[in-house]
Design a protein around this nucleic acid. Structure first.
Length: 669
DNA sequence: TGGTCCATAAACAAAT
DNA sequence: CATTTGTTTATGGACC
């Protein structure tokens, strides 16, 4: 295959955006394009030369959308931090109004956090969800918008024709028609382009569910489609300066000014055409009550007024006093199309946040409940609670932690999980390791995300390699197969191949947990679970501290690191190991596609299935034996006597393989 | 500050 | 001979 030679790799320029110097990968995406091409798999978009085009390249688009999602996410976090998330609160109205201010304000404020930071704070699933929501919304809005524009054009065209037919010379008519048609064409092209871009990037993952997706995710957002165009219009209105978040986002994008412009363009198109369309087509469907709620309530102070400025989304006009503000409010934010549209946008924002809030609240309660009861309930798992805790918060759902960890996948236990670093961007490396989130579950859950987004997975090479191997029916892979797994599963590894491949080889050789086995066909790599677990014993057991942190973090409502981590972690987990097939079950699913790793579905039945009360020495954290199959002997043993023994066979069972395995003893070295 | 864990780079050797 | 596969060593960042 095309392995590129060293030469290419060397040029890595560290200067990452943020400084995390080590990860050169990110930085040099440019050149990489070429080499990567090989891995066929998914639709690959060469990351190459993004900037050259006038239009937004897929990469840029993705970046852009991520930014958008991040914005929203940011608000969400802010709110959480400010204690909004009081547990029981269900009163949507209340929370809505409460949320409003901060949200709108924050929305406009440019970056408080960098995308990287957001990535760290938010878990991939969260990011993904946000992204999708945003994308769905945008898509919808765009579609509506274009539709509307086209209708307008057609109408105009018709009118013109009629009139022209009567009074205008043919030539003129011809010209006009031409002009309109061109416009129409442009519109169509634009539309197609945008839709294409959106889909391309995205939304790939979005695609499948797309049909119903948007509606589902944004039940409320779906409001009347017809109104949407107005949203854009309103926002795009020339008069208002900063408002459009889109624009702001654009500014934020460090490197892509072009992006901003190109993206913002579409909405802008509207002004010219729109001015007269508005009068007509806009049935202002605005619901009075909402409107009134935000405008009218002016007790002593006004919810839209604070710190001397107008808090209306996008408007930060300074007002000396309330009186002046009111005046401003009445003049600038009167009941017009723009205000209505903005209001609607705000409604959507709030609604989404409410949904999110409800989810998070639920999760919080479950967490609290769990942590509380924990003391009394020691036994379920001797294991580190932390682990289970982390595992247990799936996205939104709450499932009993206790049972959570093990239960989910009876067969394939969390055993495999172990290492991984949980989320996290920069920190990715180690810190998380300690948290020990199950890579398998995380992966399963965010499988699509990593597959399509050029984001560096928050796992160490070792944990990824292990995952790759374990996902295989016979738990063994050749080096090349490992490479393929990487490229298949992560968009990120589709470039800089020389670099990460070297790292993979390095890790295989370096870690005792990877055992090379000579096979008929050559050599394959297997994982020695015992060794693997051995590497990180210390912390886990001591989880108490972690728990403590979590608790304190929660109680204070502060976004401290531990909380963030917990948050991030929480979302991943869903299922623990979905696709992983264990040999035992192997027969069934196996070989095929691993992709399924993603099978997850979130809702985990909480069927507690049995929680295997596995106890294992603390050191070996989770483990489960999987039972089902002797196949992996390796795993089995670990629970028991820790180190001991030489393992008998590791793999024996499955099949013959005479050559199999391992030689006893050696590993101890 | 020192130790550990990781990522990355690179030199080399052995096998294909 | 060129690649691929494995091993090792070195360096530096992050974290505890």
């Amino acid at each position: 295959m095309m392995v590129e030679s060293a030469s290419e790799t060397i040029r890595s320029a560290p200067s990452g955006q943020n400084g995390v110097g080590s990860i050169s990968g990110q930085a040099d995406g440019s050149g990489g394009g070429a080499g990567a091409a090989g891995s066929g798999g998914t639709g690959r978009d060469s990351a190459a030369g993004a900037d050259s085009n006038g239009e937004m390249s897929p990469a840029e688009l993705l970046h852009f959308q991520q930014q958008q999602a991040l914005q929203v996410a940011r608000q969400f976090l802010l709110q959480q931090a400010s204690g909004l998330s009081s547990p029981g609160n269900n009163d949507s109205k209340q929370s809505a109004s409460a949320v409003q201010v901060p949200v709108s304000v924050a929305m406009m404020s440019p970056q408080m956090l960098t995308p990287q930071q957001m990535q760290q704070i938010l878990s991939p699933p969260q990011l993904q969800a946000l992204l999708q929501q945003q994308q769905a919304l945008m898509l919808q809005q765009l579609q509506e918008y274009y539709k509307k524009q086209q209708e307008q054009l057609h109408l105009q065209l018709l009118t013109q024709q009629q009139q022209a037919g009567k009074q205008q010379p043919k030539e003129a008519l011809g010209n006009k028609q031409l002009a309109f048609q061109q416009q129409l064409l442009q519109m169509q092209q634009l539309q197609q382009q945008h839709l294409l871009n959106l889909q391309r990037q995205g939304l790939v993952s979005l695609q499948p569910s797309q049909a119903s997706g948007p509606l589902q995710t944004l039940p409320q957002a779906a409001v009347c489609p017809t109104d949407l165009p107005q949203l854009w219009k309103g926002e795009g209105a020339p008069g208002q300066p900063a408002e459009d978040s889109v624009k702001q986002e654009g500014l934020d994008l460090t490197g892509s000014a072009t992006t901003a412009t190109s993206f913002a363009a579409p909405p802008k198109v509207s002004p010219p055409l729109s001015h007269h369309t508005l009068p007509n087509g806009q049935p202002t469907v605005l619901t009075p009550r909402r409107d009134s709620s935000s405008h009218e309530e002016t007790p002593g102070s006004h919810p839209l007024y604070g710190h001397g400025e107008c808090k209306w989304p996008g408007c930060e006009t300074l007002c000396e006093d309330l009186g002046q503000f009111i005046k401003h409010l009445n003049t600038e934010h009167a009941l017009d199309d723009r205000s209505t549209a903005q209001c609607r946008v705000q409604m959507q924002v709030v609604q989404q946040l409410e949904i999110q809030l409800a989810k998070e609240s639920e999760r919080l309660q479950a967490m609290m409940a769990h942590l509380h009861m924990r003391p009394s309930e020691p036994k379920p798992f001797s294991q580190p609670v932390t682990i289970s805790a982390a595992d247990s918060f799936p996205d939104g759902l709450v499932h009993p932690p206790t049972s959570a960890a093990a239960p989910v996948t009876p067969l394939r236990p969390p055993g495999l999980s172990s290492a991984s670093l949980h989320s996290g961007g920069p920190a990715r490396r180690r810190s998380s390791d300690k948290f020990c989130s199950p890579i398998s579950s995380e992966l399963a859950q965010n499988h699509e995300f990593y597959k399509n987004a050029d984001v560096r997975p928050p796992f160490t090479y070792a944990s990824l390699i292990r995952q790759a191997i374990l996902e295989t029916p016979d738990r063994q892979l050749t080096l090349n197969e490992i490479y393929n797994w990487f490229t298949r599963m992560f968009a990120y590894f589709r470039r800089n191949t020389a670099t990460w491949k070297n790292a993979v080889r390095h890790n295989l050789s370096l870690h005792k947990c990877f055992v090379r086995v000579e096979n008929v066909k050559g050599a394959v790599w297997t994982v020695d679970e015992r060794e693997y677990q051995k590497r990180r014993p210390p912390k886990m057991t001591g989880s108490p501290t972690l728990v403590k942190n979590m608790i304190s973090g929660l109680s204070y409502g502060a976004l401290n690191a531990s909380y963030q981590a917990a948050l991030a972690e929480s979302s991943f987990p869903l299922l623990s190991s979905p696709g992983v097939l264990n040999p035992g079950s192997a027969g069934s699913l196996l070989p095929l596609s691993h992709d399924e790793v993603g099978a997850p579905v979130e809702p985990l039945p909480s069927n507690g299935s049995s929680s295997p009360p596995r106890l294992s020495p603390p050191q070996y954290s989770h483990q489960v034996q999987v039972k089902e199959e002797p196949a992996e002997a390796e795993e089995d043993r670990r629970p028991g006597p820790p180190l001991g023994p030489p393992n008998p066979s590791t793999a024996g069972p499955p099949e013959d393989r005479d050559l199999e395995e391992e030689l006893p003893g050696e590993e101890l070295s």
